[in-house]
Nucleic acid binder design. Structure first.
Lengths: 215, 215
DNA sequence: ACCTGAACACCGTTCAAGT
DNA sequence: ACCTGAACACCGTTCAAGT
């Protein structure tokens, strides 16, 4: 019974569990990614999962790490400034498609090994484009990461179940904490947050270029 | 029976419920702020709360709004640049003490009316310090808001129950997604995220000052 | 030795029954 | 008319009982 997944897995393993959890989070949102749902998708009992993961929190960490490992690398053959902007916008676009990842981090998980490739390459691009030393580049990287995280976190989950009734709760267009009364933002195109992020990226690079005086 | 709160409330009301929820979130963390716990602290049954709030999600929105209404205003008698930096660092410090607020926003709540005073004053300061027009100042405000949110979100809740075992999960000092292998950040003083935020603030202001060419 | 059904202690939410 | 105890349908986690 239960031939749910295309090709019922022979044995359980952490990668299989993470893949199933990822599928559910992408399709039905993070709240639907319950231990029960993951077990059901794998055609097994919930208790069986606990032979491979300690608890749900560990599964969330594994998920965040899995996403981090797929963060884009810089594109080849570009001028350093464009390489810098491009990689971060690529990362933004990628994470926007897995919105739950930002939420996991907001709940306290730390992205660890999985983000190393992205971090290393982004640091290299930053160093090349700015001429800054490693300490300053690291600081700029952290600022950029948090800038991206903030932009991602403050927008509605896309593939989420709740779709209709929270439009009633939030009267504004769809973003901004409180754009001051009266004149709202004049109905932004589609992803105003992405435009904001793109606007802010070069500012950090410019700051890094003249950072030694600050340090 | 149950004279828990100092002076048992005569009648239930939204402000009373929000105050109780706020107390619990501040003391025991957001996860402990359950409908049951709020009701118990108010000395009433859980079902009674639903006469005043639609559901837990609405309570979270009310909490976020309550925090937003207490965001600091700019200090008087300062040079515009210092006023700008000071207000945002004050806001950061305040929200750091109510870490759950950032998490609520990360879960999809929008800060609305409560943040108006902060947003209005911050916009005025931005305009004065930069000479930018309203549209550019609004964009900078959104970027700063998201920058602050990202810095707040990517650090462990402070007053949270889980304290010991997730130090085992995250080997790094306490911040940064992945500062590249090998040389870790050299043991930051106490709040490296705040230093990063303070470093980034003037970059946004500088960008705003020369923004017309970008727009 | 390995797996898991069934139970446990929670949670948000509802509603019939009380006053 | 207003309030709420008790129930409902979930959740993460555990463990005794199965194979």
């Amino acid at each position: 019974m239960s031939a749910r997944a295309p090709g019922r897995p022979a044995v359980l393993s952490r990668p299989l569990i993470v893949a199933a959890a990822r599928w559910i989070a992408d399709h039905d949102g993070l709240d639907a990614m319950t231990v029960r749902a993951v077990a059901q998708r794998l055609g097994t009992g919930q208790a069986s999962l606990y032979r491979h993961i300690a608890d749900r929190r560990e599964l969330l960490v594994l998920l965040a790490d899995d996403v981090a490992a797929r963060l884009p690398l810089p594109r080849e053959g570009l001028e350093p400034g464009e390489q810098f902007t491009g990689q971060w916008l690529d990362a933004y676009d990628y994470l926007r498609g897995h919105h739950w990842a930002a939420r996991i981090i907001a709940e306290g998980a730390q992205v660890r090994a999985g983000g190393a490739a992205f971090a290393d390459s982004a640091l290299a691009v930053l160093t090349t484009a700015s001429g800054a030393d490693r300490g300053d580049a690291l600081r700029a990287f952290r600022v950029l990461w948090h800038l991206m995280l903030g932009h991602l976190v403050n927008s509605h989950p896309v593939g989420h179940p709740r779709t209709h009734e929270d439009a009633g709760t939030a009267p504004g267009p769809h973003d901004e904490p409180s754009p001051a009364p009266g004149t709202q933002t004049p109905a932004p195109p589609s992803d105003a947050a992405r435009d904001d992020f793109a606007w802010a990226l070069p500012l950090v690079l410019a700051g890094l270029r003249r950072s030694p005086e600050t340090r």
